[in-house]
Amino acid sequence: MLDPVLLGRRLHDLRADRGLALTALAKEAGVSVSMLSAIERGEKTPTVVVLSRIADGLGLSLSRLLADLETDRVIVRRAAEQDHVAEPGGWHRTVLTPVVPGVNFEWIRTTLPPRCDAGTFPAYAPGSHEFVAVEAGTLHLGVGAAEYVLGAGDSVYFPADAPHSYANRGADPCVYHVAALIMRPRKTG
């Protein structure tokens, strides 16, 4: 299991060793200053994607950033420990997966209220994958120029190296799960 206090200390030390102010690393990593500060204080455990951005900002691989921080090979993430994110427009995400060193995988449960468009997400790096399973309601999934209408129990896979979007055009809430393996290009130099 990844100890958030140890992770925070590691990030703070790496940032200080590089002479980076909190604002400079936040800008370089594309992460808010408040999020980075909360992570350094051990108050928040970042998602894999956020942690990968921070590693990029420090010029490190994710596995190098997390080296020696793992204290247990089995990670139980209780419901109360999961990250719950209320998004603009009224939709809600729950990040179900813990951060695992060297693994760019996330499993997210999303609820879209009636007539909610979650927007378009940019293409990820080549080699990225998304698997979507609809639990309830009807999901309109856009992948590139195509749209797929999925009902409860339906699932789909697509390479996530194309822009993709999620919308609920119905009168009932839509609940779906996304399992994503996200590759991120590393900065050079």
Rank of each mutant, 00 (worst) to 15 (best):
Q82P: 12
Q82V: 10
D83W: 03
A86E: 14
A86R: 13
E87P: 00
E87D: 05
E87L: 13
P88K: 14
G89N: 12
G90V: 11
W91G: 02
W91C: 03
R93I: 00
T94E: 13
T94Y: 01
T94D: 02
T94Q: 14
L96A: 04
L96R: 01
T97M: 03
P98N: 05
P98G: 14
V99F: 01
V99M: 04
V99L: 11
P101T: 05
G102Q: 10
G102W: 08
V103Y: 02
N104V: 02
F105S: 04
F105D: 04
E106W: 00
E106K: 00
E106R: 01
W107R: 06
W107M: 11
I108C: 01
R109T: 02
T110Q: 03
T110W: 02
T111D: 06
P113M: 11
P114E: 04
R115L: 10
C116A: 13
C116N: 04
C116M: 06
D117A: 10
A118G: 11
G119W: 10
G119Q: 12
T120H: 07
T120I: 11
F121H: 05
F121S: 13
P122I: 07
P122K: 08
A123G: 09
A123V: 06
A123C: 11
A125T: 15
P126D: 14
G127W: 12
S128E: 07
E130Y: 03
E130S: 09
E130I: 01
A133H: 14
A133V: 15
E135M: 10
E135W: 05
G137V: 14
H140N: 08
L141V: 11
G142P: 08
G142H: 12
E147S: 14
E147G: 05
Y148T: 06
